[in-house]
């Protein structure tokens, strides 16, 4: 456990000293390394430019062995993000079968940013938005920009999705302790 916290601290230091482009990281609670609040600036030359998107990164207790959970705290109009207050993201490297302990959070956050640059409509969470993205790009861009204006301007509020993220963290923790009991 100690070594795992050490790894998280190391990654946090890495991410704060030389953060990936457009990303700033804060800890809502200094004593809790397992919850990160990330502010992601909408990449330039995309429909999300000018928006500030809040991400909540929740690290399971056995973090490098299990994938972290990333959710959007800010509403975003995107084929791969659920269009609700949960803000679940479909991210390849975070899927249980794809996760590798050698994957780093900086990389994960960059993947999220890459998803804003290049949505993946073929693996959508919001099928309707994905269809719109493929078939009526102008309409998609209009809607996405409207969402940015409506939700992603001004300082990021992380409260909206905190409840959902907390529930996810508890679930992850529960699964982990369960596994620990089963395999002494």
């Amino acid at each position: 456990m100690a070594s795992q916290n050490k790894r998280i601290a190391k990654e946090l230091a890495e991410c704060t000293t030389s953060p990936p482009a457009g990303i700033t990281i804060t800890l809502p609670n200094d004593s809790d390394l397992h919850r990160w609040h990330v502010t992601l600036a909408g990449p330039d030359n995309t429909v999300y430019a000018g928006g500030q998107f809040g991400l909540i990164v929740t690290l399971p207790v056995d973090y490098p062995f299990r994938a972290p959970v990333v959710t959007f705290a800010t509403r975003i109009y995107h084929p791969n993000v659920t269009n609700d207050s949960l803000g679940n993201v479909c991210l390849g490297p975070l899927k249980a079968e794809n996760w590798k302990p050698s994957t780093r959070l900086a990389g994960v956050l960059e993947a999220v940013r890459a998803l804003l640059v290049e949505p993946q409509p073929d693996d959508p969470l919001e099928a309707r938005i994905a269809d719109e993205f493929r078939q009526d790009r102008a309409e998609f861009e209009k809607n996405a920009r409207a969402y940015v204006v409506r939700y992603a301007k001004g300082p990021v509020k992380f409260d909206a999705a905190v409840g959902a993220a907390a529930a996810g963290a508890e679930a992850a923790g529960g699964a982990a302790t369960g596994a620990a009991v089963v395999r002494p």
């Binding site: 070594s3 795992q4 050490k6 790894r7 190391k10 490098p64 062995f65 302990p101 780093r104």
Partner: peptide, 13 residues
């Protein structure tokens, strides 16, 4: 990089 592995990829030490 099986040739050069300066850190443990699990704990990053």
């Amino acid at each position: 990089a099986t040739d050069y592995q300066p850190t443990c990829e699990i704990c990053l030490e």
